[in-house]
């Protein structure tokens, strides 16, 4: 089973003191209803947690609140706690409060409670997330007009993913819509979420380890793998979720390892540590 790619990353498995997992495409495929667990992922997470290795979940999911995301995952069989899960919205909320910013929101309605308690009149920035069907010409135009009215236009984007896989196919993530607004207003967005370093750092700080002791596992070669590596973490790419074979020949990102799925990653990782 062990391909040369797999064998390579096992060399450093013993140095790993904490694991950071992406959620959609690694634990489950989202879609209508609660989505579907990826085979073997529920057991893999349970085994990992039972082994005593700290595990955190780092996601750019902004379609709902942290609490609802965890509830949804637990309904399909996972056992996660909200404080193990790091989505961008609570981080954005903190940034808005610290900097005294008033947002115009272009986010999914279900995500809004994580951004509640921040003044929204007379906006001084636009916050964009995965609004999915909330992306219309009208909503994009309102965000654009809000930006053009600002003295210093500021666009905060919860991730910059290009697309993700749902049970009925690939769907555009918030990145393309963020790029549309960047192009329209000739500006560059501030990213909160993967692949931003501050976002990964917050997760590492919570585990209490340095980046060289951490392993990221994700299905997005740029945002998960490239982003984690840029912070000094090791990173594996899974062949589930939005994975496409061309990701293994990415021009700028080379994963430390490629595995078929989370189950295989965890099996190999734990067996190597037991030796």
């Amino acid at each position: 089973m062990a391909t040369p790619m797999v064998a390579g990353w096992l060399k450093f498995a013993k140095e790993i003191e904490g694991i950071v997992l992406d959620i959609a495409g690694v634990l489950y495929d989202s879609g209508d209803g609660d989505g579907v667990p990826i085979p073997g992922s529920i057991e893999a997470v349970n085994r990992l947690k039972a082994s005593g290795v700290p595990v955190r979940f780092c996601t750019n999911a902004t379609e709902t609140t942290r609490v609802n995301l965890v509830a949804k995952l637990n309904r399909i069989g996972f056992s996660l706690e909200p404080n193990e899960v790091f989505p961008p919205a609570p981080a954005v909320c903190q940034i808005l409060k610290e900097r005294g910013l008033r947002p115009h929101l272009l986010v999914a309605d279900d995500c809004k409670p994580d951004l509640a308690g921040v003044e929204q009149h007379d906006p001084t920035c636009v916050v964009i997330g995965d609004a999915a069907h909330g992306f219309t010409y009208d909503s994009m135009n309102k965000a654009f007009q809000a930006l053009m009215q600002m003295e210093k236009p500021l666009l905060i984007s919860m991730g910059q993913g290009k697309y993700y896989l749902e049970t009925d196919g690939l769907k555009l993530d918030c990145g393309p819509f963020m790029k549309a607004l960047e192009y329209a207003c000739s500006l560059e967005a501030e990213i909160v979420g993967k692949p931003s370093k501050t976002f990964f750092d917050a997760v590492l700080k919570d585990i209490g380890i340095s980046s060289d002791k951490a392993l990221m596992i994700g299905d997005d070669v740029v945002s998960d793998v490239g982003g984690a590596q840029a912070c000094g973490m090791r990173a594996l790419l899974v062949r589930t979720g939005k994975y496409r074979p061309t990701d293994e020949k990415h021009p700028t990102v080379t994963p430390d390892g490629v595995v078929d799925n989370l189950q295989q990653a965890v099996e190999l990782f734990l067996s190597c540590r037991d030796k």
Binding site: Y137, N141, Q145, K162, K179, A180
Partner: peptide, 26 residues
């Protein structure tokens, strides 16, 4: 075009949407 001007203000042109798909698909 990035945007166009109408009597009641600025509106997005087709450019941003073309750009969005360019980014999504590389």
């Amino acid at each position: 075009a990035r945007y166009l001007k109408k009597k009641d203000g600025l509106y997005l042109g087709p450019g941003p949407f073309v750009h969005a798909l360019e980014y999504a698909t590389g």
